[in-house]
């Protein structure tokens, strides 16, 4: 407990011994993790490994069965903390009948934005993801990549201190993907903490630090380079395979 209060001032996320079970299946098993403010932290793991569950616990959408989580020094879950982060879910949570603009306005007003502030924020978020020309179209007419970009713009709308992005660049072309990563980098320089889940390995290498999740266990947390060195390999992909199998041999 004392350790937590020492570091809570400069840590965005402190998770200690998190356990989450669904029925008799343990989805997250004793996960401890600290993410400092302004870090771009990547969660890497195969589907079903518990990445999304971990994100839901950190943001307070779900509750851990054991362990505790602090977000910006506040114990989670708490309703008011939902205002502090922007969330981009794995599925594009858009209303098909509404235009891009109406979708943004809806979510924006849920975060308490209105009037000119809302209009300005909508404009800058849309231009960041290159959607300004398509805002008046119904989202049912959007391509997969456009929907992804609109979801990202919505997550950025209220200028949150923490961005939680679940597979943000699926279906986005390489050029725009690069722009988005550059923008994420700029945001971290402004002090925004970003958590990204991905299974694109070259994206993983762009993160400040990586957490490798497998079968609900955090098998490694370090910078991409340190992880590769530790595993004695040259790519994150190989590191993931080697660290994963090492772990299962021990247990």
């Amino acid at each position: 407990m004392t350790k937590a209060t020492e570091t809570s001032a400069d840590s965005a996320i402190i998770a200690q011994h998190i356990v989450r079970r669904f029925g008799d299946r343990t989805v997250l098993d004793d996960i401890s993790l600290t993410v400092p403010r302004g870090e771009l932290f990547g969660l890497l793991g195969p589907s079903g490994s518990g990445k999304t569950t971990l994100i839901k616990l950190i943001t307070g959408i779900d509750r851990a069965d054991a362990g505790n989580i602090q977000l910006f020094g506040e114990p989670m879950p708490q309703l008011k903390m939902l205002q502090t982060f922007g969330y981009m879910a794995q599925s594009d949570a858009l209303y098909q009948e509404l235009t891009g603009k109406e979708n943004m306005a809806f979510y924006g007003s849920l975060y308490g934005l209105k009037g000119k502030v809302l209009a300005d924020r909508m404009q800058s978020a849309a231009s960041l993801v290159n959607l300004t020309d398509h805002l008046d179209k119904q989202t049912s007419a959007y391509s997969g990549g456009m929907k992804r970009r609109l979801s990202l713009a919505i997550a950025l709308l209220h200028e949150p201190q923490l961005l939680v992005l679940d597979e943000p660049t699926v279906g986005i072309d390489p050029v725009l993907r690069k722009t988005i990563w550059n923008e994420l980098r700029t945001l971290t320089e402004k002090g925004v903490t970003i958590i990204v889940t991905t299974h694109v390995m070259d994206e993983a290498e762009k993160c400040d630090r990586l957490g490798l999740i497998r079968d609900g266990k955090l098998i490694a947390v370090d910078t991409p380079v340190a992880i590769m060195v530790q595993a004695g390999v040259h790519t994150i992909e190989e590191a993931f395979i080697s660290l994963g199998s090492e772990r299962s041999e021990h247990s």
């Binding site: 008011k80 969330y87 879910a89 858009l94 979510y107």
Partner: peptide
């Protein structure tokens, strides 16, 4: 089913 409820519940709405 469209995931908008999940997204809605990630906002500070009660």
């Amino acid at each position: 089913t469209s995931g908008t409820l999940e997204r809605l519940l990630a906002t500070p709405i009660r």
